[in-house]
Design a protein around this nucleic acid. Sequence first.
RNA 1: GCGCCCGUAGCUCAGCCGGAUAGAGCAACGGACUUCUAAUCCGUAGGUCGCAGGUUCGAAUCCUGCCGGGCGCGCCA
Length: 568
Amino acid sequence: MSQEAIRKVIEGILSEMGISDVAVHLDQPNNPSHGDLATNVALTLASAVGKSPRTIAEEIASHIKVGEFGIQAVEVAGPGFLNFKLSTDQVVTVLMDIIVEQDGYGRSDDGKGRKFMVEFVSANPTGPLHLGHGRQGALGDAIAGLLEWNGWSVGREYYYNDAGAQIDRLGESVWARYQQYLGEEIDLPEGGYQGEYVIKIAEKFAAEYGDRFKGDNSQKPLDLMKRTAIRIIRDEQDKDLSDFRIDFDVYFLESSLYENGQVESTVEALKKAGHVYDKDDAVWLRTTEFGDQKDRVMIKRDGSPTYFLPDVAYHIDKWNRGFYQVVNVQGADHHGTIARVQAGLQALGLPEGYPDYVLHQMVRVERDGKDVKLSKRSGSYITLRELMTEVGVDVTRYFFQMRKPEGHLVFDLDLALDQSDKNPVYKIQYAHVRMCSIFRKAGIERDNLIAENVDLSVLDTKAERELIKQLSHFPELIRRAARLRAPHIMCDYLEETAGAVNSWYHAGNPNRNPELAVLVSDSDLRNARLVLARAIQIVLYNGLSILGIVAPERMFRDSDTAVHSTNR
RNA sequence: GCGCCCGUAGCUCAGCCGGAUAGAGCAACGGACUUCUAAUCCGUAGGUCGCAGGUUCGAAUCCUGCCGGGCGCGCCA
């Protein structure tokens, strides 16, 4: 790339000026009038050198040889920026890269194949998945995709909290519903689960076991109902997730940590590490030594562990499996647990800050500007299943991804159901479809398109030049989005790119400006624009695939249902 | 009270590894187009970047303090 070469040139000039060891930072200005590349070295050097920024910039500029490294012009602007304009020849070279690399364009090897775990969703099997889980699923899957594109070997993992008090409460709820079903006057337990799915589970249980456990409040039916409920709910959650196009590599059961003694051995290890003490008949861990706000109970008065103990055991297990990089995606309401889990792990010698977390805020659904809340399915919250059935998987995923995780999300149902370009998902998909349709119309197999022998320098309209530069930003963008664990950066990029693409496409409407159409009669121009169209298609395809969203070949309007045909 | 997050255009939000006139979408307003590549296109207007200090040649961006909103502060997860 010429960028690296130009950086070296500037560094060379600086050292001739007696200034060395300066990191020259070149960036690509958003404002086209600031050229194709710009640097602020002169400003950063001014006070150290004792000259005005503009003087330094002028001096550097005077040593730049126009014509080399694709530099077409250099100028000093504003307070002392150096702006470079590159030749069209130079700018269009990226198109060759894109066409050659195809679905590899944008990948990096930063991770060098090392292991990276993304743990997400991790819902308790106590009820249907809600929108928080949906947001988590969409975010986690996209973060995993971003990391994969940066060369990490990513494991997607789901932790089922299938042990503990919440699950006991579920069993008791089913038990109560079962008794009610058999005509007994029994109330739901305190803190029990209200949703109608609990009734369904009780009915299924009754269908299988009849009235054998009527009035029987011994441990045996309770355990049986608990296991049955977990099985049914897990099946349903798994179905929801696979329909949401999320596949996990590992489903990790909390109960397995008890069964194979890892909880026990973690207790022993913590005791051995010397950060454990007894107080009020409970066993405490001195998490304050590692920055927590107060010490935490790890074994309750009744002898059972608090949730955070298996959590620590689980993360030890992750570490021992070679996942030295872990990011957990969870709701912000759990943020209070982070310090204590990390503290527990540090007590056992794991590094500070392990694991990393992405916390997301809650989702609010609006229709006509008003909150939508009710769901009879779950008893209170809207389920993921309900939302994705109504608006489609692509739209649901995108909407969950398009805002930064730490912000609240307003899910606008009216916009989600709109099938025009107003809806960012469709806007991006249409842009992709339009590129595909050009090749259909031209009768060209786009996968076979090659850019050799095509004179790309004819792509010199302002719109084309900016579009090409936009495509060239893609690899760096993936890096940035992965580093910040921020899928919304990709969403913004794709929407912006799609806007430029649609505008470029529409400008060539044969009714107005046939000379701007891709399929113009001038064959040199046509061939070059086909290369651009193909490059656009590749970038949109790659971007969407990272987000787990379909890049359709063609789209149809179906007026009867809101669910888009490409989601099937 | 303590901790974390958020506060940018009428609305929903980017930008926040400090930089050159603060961006996008929707809504609003004004044009264009009449099926051609149109489940349109082009353009206009709209902001004390919550407030007040500080650091800096330069602050939406960094620091401090307030104000407003969310979440957490269980021997629940």
